[in-house]
Structures are given as C-alpha cells and as structure tokens.
Design a protein around this nucleic acid. Structure first.
Lengths: 194, 194
DNA sequence: AATTGTTTATGACGCTCGTTATAGCCTACG
DNA sequence: CGTAGGCTATAACGAGCGTCATAAACAATT
C-alpha cells in the first residue's frame, strides 16, 4: 500500500470547491468537477465512492477549514482582527473571480439534497457555519463579552457576511460587503468594551 | 384575442418560485417546474418563450414583489415594524417547509448562469435586493437617520436575513434567524433615535 | 355555425446526467 | 525482477435534460 498522501484526491477536492462556489452543487456535474482538476472521471469514484454528495461534503469541509485556519490565526490578535481577515478573505474571492464566485458552504446550504441520497453535504455546511461561529464567539468571550451576546453576535457576523457575498455577486458590486464591514466592526467594538 | 389574465401563467410562476427556493435553479428541471403547478410542459414554453432563465427571472420577481408589498405596508408603522414583518415572513417560510425552503432570490444569486444564455434571473435577483434595501433605507431616513447610515443599515438587514435563512436550513434550527432579529432591531432603534 | 387565435397535448431531437464495470497501467515493496 | 494493489483510462448503462415542432382541443367573437 502507498504511504504518501495521494495528491490527486486533494486536487479534486480543491477543484470541486472552486466549481461549487461558482455554479452551485446541482449546477456542477461530476464530469466537470473531475475535469476542473485535470483528474479522470474514474478517479472521482475511486476516491469518493459515495459519489457526488461525498465529494461535495469534502469540498465544503475543505473550504470551511481554510477559512477556519485564517480565522484561528488572526483571532489571536482579537475579534476585530479576526473579523477583518474573514471579510478580506471573501472580498478577495469575490473580486478575484470578477463576481462569479461566492461561498461554497452557502451554495450547498441553499439546495435541497435529492430524496434518495443521504445529505452529507448540507450537514457539512451546518458544521462549518457552527465552527466559524464558535471561534468568533469564543474570541468575544475572551475579551469580556457576555456568553449569550457573544454567540448571537457571532451568528450575525457569519449571516451578514454570507448574505452580503451573495448580494455582491448578484449586483456585481463589492459595496454590500464593504457596507457591512464597518457596521460589524463597530458592533464588535461595543461588545468587547462592555 | 383573450382579454382575461391567463391563470395558468401565474400558477406556473408561483410553483416555480416554490421549487426554486427549495432546490435552487439548476436543481429544478423545466419539467418539474411545469408539473409542480399542474401545467403541461408545452405551456411553459408557450408563456416563457425564452425558456428556463425567463421563467426563473419572473419567479424571482414574483417572490420579490410579494415581500416588497409586505414591507411597504408594514413600514408605514415605522422601520422596526417593517423589520419584524420581514423577519416573520422568512421565519414562516422556513418553519412551514420544515427547513427545506429558503429564499428563491438568494438561491438564484449564488448560481452562475450558463455561458450561452443571458442571465435574466440573476439580474432580477439584484433588482429585488435593491428594492428591499431601498424601502428600508427610505423608512430609516424618514425617521431621522442619516442617508449614508440608512443605506448601510438596510444592506446589513437584508444580508443578515438572507444569510441567516440559509444557516437555519443547514442547521435545521430557527435560532440563527431569531438571534439576528433582536440585534437588528436594536440597531434600527439606535439609528432612528440619533 | 363558422372562424380565429390561445392553450394544451404529445412526441421527439441531440445531448448530458450520475453511476458502474472492466481492462490496463504504474509504482512500491518483496 | 516479479508481482500485488492502488490508480487511470475508456466505454457503457438507463434515465433525464432543455428545447422545439406540430396537431388537437378549446374559447370567444362574428
């Protein structure tokens, strides 16, 4: 058996996350997902035997972990720094893609899974949302915010960012994201100086 | 020529909005969209000769106008009343559908349209977002909020509501929507008493 | 009743979907 | 150096896709 990490498997996941955040899950075919990373179709079902749902779930977790790591690192400098990094991440995604890419987690969250398969992907999306909220919430508590207020504010931040990214795409305008940025920062400032 | 409004056409649009908000646009086939309202497939292309994109755009506008009318009516009693009605609308949608339905406008906004067709649907989504923001913003200005602050806060409200509805679906939990409700209300109160 | 135009019914078109199967390739270990 | 097992290549399966064409059914006006 091979000891080394298979490189193709990760490349497929990365490509899948990139395609899903642009076209959505139902809008991305398994063939496209494979071709997007240069992998053959057969490899897709070799690495992800449960098919499209499994690949989507892993893509969601991959994109989620990426943002989670950025968040963890920057939150060490405080919740405002974490927020800024989180916002910058999505700002770059939207701008770099010329308003064609959004958040793959959100893309999966707004699609009802087919009746026959078990909904791995949307469950993964829920976990990613909770992970982001948990990190933000803990950081707010560390700076003196009340636990319930910290949790609620963390939810507001994630919801507003996700919603505004979608609005930016539709309008082809980065303003929604920038408009919420200043307001969320003020809210966090107020919560930690109480 | 017939003077009366065709009933089937509107029924198709209503059914399309209902299916899109659950499965997304790419996840809804033209046959399903027709069948969902009891209409034959042929009628779809009779009423919407530009095909799926046109039908989706009209479904988005229909759902958008529905919320717009609720918003217009309730905003007469002030921005907080408008916000409450807006939140209640989406709360009911999510609850009544047992967390399988969200906002059709958001569903369309997160999907890149195919290369060959012109993107009617996502343009309609952008207009709906702007209409909602415009109503909220005007109501805030009427109560004394500064114009720039009113516009930014309106964007935050729409973004947070859209994002939290998606989070509710993924988590199968209404809490995200309720958590942002109280915070948005406080923000509006603060903005109009300045 | 005849006529006109709108709506429905039906079937087909070429293509693509998710998934599976199988035969060959390649690499790492014995 | 042989051989076993992970990976790739390729083709196929039935089903379903968006769209179009055409003819029958219908409604409303002469």
């Amino acid at each position: 058996m091979s000891q080394r990490e298979p490189r193709s498997r990760e490349r497929i996941i990365i490509g899948a996350a990139d395609l899903i955040r642009r076209r959505g899950l139902a809008g991305s075919t398994v063939r496209d997902l494979a071709a997007h990373s240069g992998a053959p179709l057969g490899s897709t079902y070799h690495y992800f035997p449960r098919g499209k749902q499994q690949l989507a779930a892993e893509a969601v977790r991959f994109a989620g972990d990426l943002a989670t790591r950025v968040l963890e690192r920057e939150l060490e400098a405080g919740p405002v720094a974490g927020l800024r990094a989180f916002l910058a991440l999505w700002r770059q995604t939207v701008i770099d893609s010329d308003f064609t890419a959004g958040c793959p987690v959100l893309a999966v969250a707004v699609e009802e899974p087919p009746d026959d398969a078990d909904p791995e992907a949307i469950k993964a999306a829920a976990e990613v949302f909770s992970a982001w909220e948990g990190l933000l919430s803990a950081s707010l508590r560390d700076r003196g915010a009340a636990p319930e207020e910290a949790a609620r504010l963390a939810t507001l931040v994630v919801a507003a960012v996700e919603g505004s990214v979608a609005m930016c795409r539709a309008k082809r305008d980065i303003r929604p994201l920038d408009d919420i940025a200043a307001q969320l920062e003020t809210l966090i400032d107020a919560a930690v100086t109480t």
